[in-house]
């Protein structure tokens, strides 16, 4: 109880890390709902990894002296964000074009992209120990290292992403659920797909910079997967996923602080337990129904 009071206190030393974690916990599942419903879960794994390859490239170029910065750590973060954003946007734009040409973005391609981007990251960083240390911290989900500027960037970016998802929810849901109907209604299907992918790319870039690919993937996909069996409408699905992600981020932070564990993996493990419980309840419910 003392730990909870300490963590939730406004004077808590790691409050920026906690607030960023909560923002990501609340917002990532809303984006993840579309990855789950469009059956792009593997893309949810691959995109954060591709995004972190962009970070690795940016940090390596900086460490090797190809990019010069003048204002210390904030600029290094900004550089990493630019790298992450460029790689994410390139990947989602390619995805949108391939989908338009009806080229299957199948599991094999996504798997290949995942391992290649991981290998590329490791090779890029092999000769740059400084950059490698920063990237590995990112990869492990060292949330406690988050600064106030990270919090502002994360909060601002996710506010924009969530606002656009809310504003254009009708169009995005229509083209995602029944693209043939959307075409007969003369909606700009490619444009709405592209907007959704760009929002996903932006969300992933920002989250990867703040908490790394592991935690980003965890918050994108585990809350929607845990909640889906119990949601009857889109509104319920989105809100329940977001609330679960937000709660998990706070509880995970408290547990990690109490037991001196890394926050990111603790959050993901906690979400995994909730996801397992949710699926267990669903299994028992199905069994009970089949016996009636």
């Amino acid at each position: 109880m003392n730990v909870l009071t300490e963590v939730l206190s406004p004077s808590f030393l790691l409050r920026d890390a906690l607030y960023t974690s909560v923002v990501i916990g609340l917002a990532c599942p809303v984006v993840g709902v579309f990855l789950v419903l469009r059956r792009m879960v593997f893309m949810g794994v691959a995109l954060p990894q591709i995004s972190s390859t962009g970070v690795a490239l940016a940090l390596s170029l900086h460490a090797l002296g190809h990019i010069h910065l003048e204002h210390g750590s904030f600029d290094t973060h900004a550089l990493a964000f630019v790298g992450s954003l460029i790689f994410s946007i390139l990947a989602v734009t390619a995805l949108a074009f391939l989908e338009r040409r009806r080229v299957a973005w199948n599991e094999a391609r996504i798997g290949a992209l995942y391992v290649l981007s991981t290998a590329a990251s490791l090779l890029l960083l092999a000769k740059c120990p400084t950059a490698e240390r920063g990237w590995l911290n990112l990869f492990k989900g060292e949330i406690i290292a988050i600064s106030n500027s990270d919090l502002k960037l994360t909060g601002g970016a996710f506010a924009g992403v969530l606002f656009l998802l809310w504003l254009f929810r009708k169009e995005i849901i229509l083209v995602s659920y029944d693209r043939e109907l959307a075409m007969t209604l003369r909606k700009a299907v490619f444009g709405w797909d592209l907007l959704l992918y760009l929002l996903i790319g932006l969300a992933i870039s920002v989250a990867v910079i703040a908490v790394g690919p592991l935690v980003t993937f965890g918050f994108l996909l585990l809350p929607p997967l845990a909640v889906r069996p119990f949601a009857g409408t889109m509104r319920q699905f989105v809100i329940a996923s977001s609330v679960l992600g937000g709660l998990a981020s706070v509880v995970g932070f408290v547990l990690a602080y109490h037991w001196d564990l890394p926050v990111g993996p603790t959050d993901v493990a906690l979400l995994g337990v909730v996801c397992g419980l949710g699926n267990g309840v669903q299994w028992l419910r199905n069994r009970a129904l089949s016996f009636r």
Partner: peptide, 25 residues
């Protein structure tokens, strides 16, 4: 052709028919 994974009610499905007349946003 409609994915059963989507948690949409029959009313929400019927409502989609009206989207053609509504401007974006």
């Amino acid at each position: 052709s409609l994915d059963p994974l989507w948690p949409v009610s029959a009313f929400e499905v019927a409502l989609m028919g009206t989207y053609g007349r509504l401007v974006a946003g």
